[in-house]
Design a protein around this nucleic acid. Structure first.
Lengths: 129, 129
DNA sequence: CAGATACCCTACTAATTTAGTATGCTTTAA
DNA sequence: TTAAAGCATACTAAATTAGTAGGGTATCTG
């Protein structure tokens, strides 16, 4: 019941960028500040870029910046991109008795919605000083 | 952001036992009904037994039974035994700036408590017909 | 008391997922 | 034109999870 390191790194990078305002910052610098491998962070920021959470600029003095204001980006936005949809359980068992798994499915569904709702309310702007 | 198959199997087995009342049922039979490997289920039930959620009886006509009433066992009880404590994120990054990770830690802490609270309210007795 | 049944325990293996690297290419500002 | 930076793909390594194997121990039944 954990989020991956990828999600942590992505969130840290996004918070880092949010603190920067709308100026760009290079992967190398973010990676250094957050203590993450630059190459790994590169992959993560790529994912976030493809989903329009950040934009990138090539060349000298290039780098990344938030694409929307920090108040419009929620923790859920980031988590869902890096972690996949919030579904605490997909039933893997072969047998699925109505009386068991359907009640369980309901548990996971309610829980998933609740988690997403909570993370949706927390914006990047709430997380910066 | 998922629970493991082990947790699903454990929950299914517990629901299965709850439906049985306080009579015992063998691993073999539960495993068959739930479509899980008996050997794997054996290990899972062992974990639940060591935490006093079920009790076991050896010998002919032996098997497992709930140790408390289904109304006194919550989904959280089972999940925590099989999944470990509900902490959605332990910070793994080497660097931990006050302004970043402390706000994040707060997010995970609130979320973890909320998840646990939700699962704590759902009892086995709510999940059986 | 013998034998079958069913749990108990430890160690091992296989599969899957996650984390991290390597390499080479393309764009762009100075 | 050159160096800085991102882009893309493929690969490798580490960690976790799932599942097996095999022998031991208690207990009921005849």
């Amino acid at each position: 019941m954990k989020f991956s390191a990828q999600t942590e790194y992505g969130l840290k990078a996004m918070i880092n960028l949010a603190q920067r305002g709308d100026k760009t910052k290079s992967i190398k610098l973010i990676a250094e500040e957050e203590g993450v491998s630059p190459k790994y962070l590169e992959k993560i920021l790529n994912l976030l870029r493809k989903q329009d959470l950040v934009e990138s600029f090539k060349g000298t003095n290039g780098g990344y910046a938030l694409k929307k204001s920090a108040a419009k980006i929620s923790v859920a936005d980031i988590v869902i991109i890096l972690e996949g949809p919030i579904e605490p359980m997909k039933c893997v068992g072969k047998v699925c008795h109505m009386e068991n798994s359907c009640s369980l499915k309901n548990v996971w569904s309610i829980l998933g919605q609740q988690i997403e709702h909570t993370l949706r309310k927390i914006k990047l702007s709430d997380l910066i000083k």
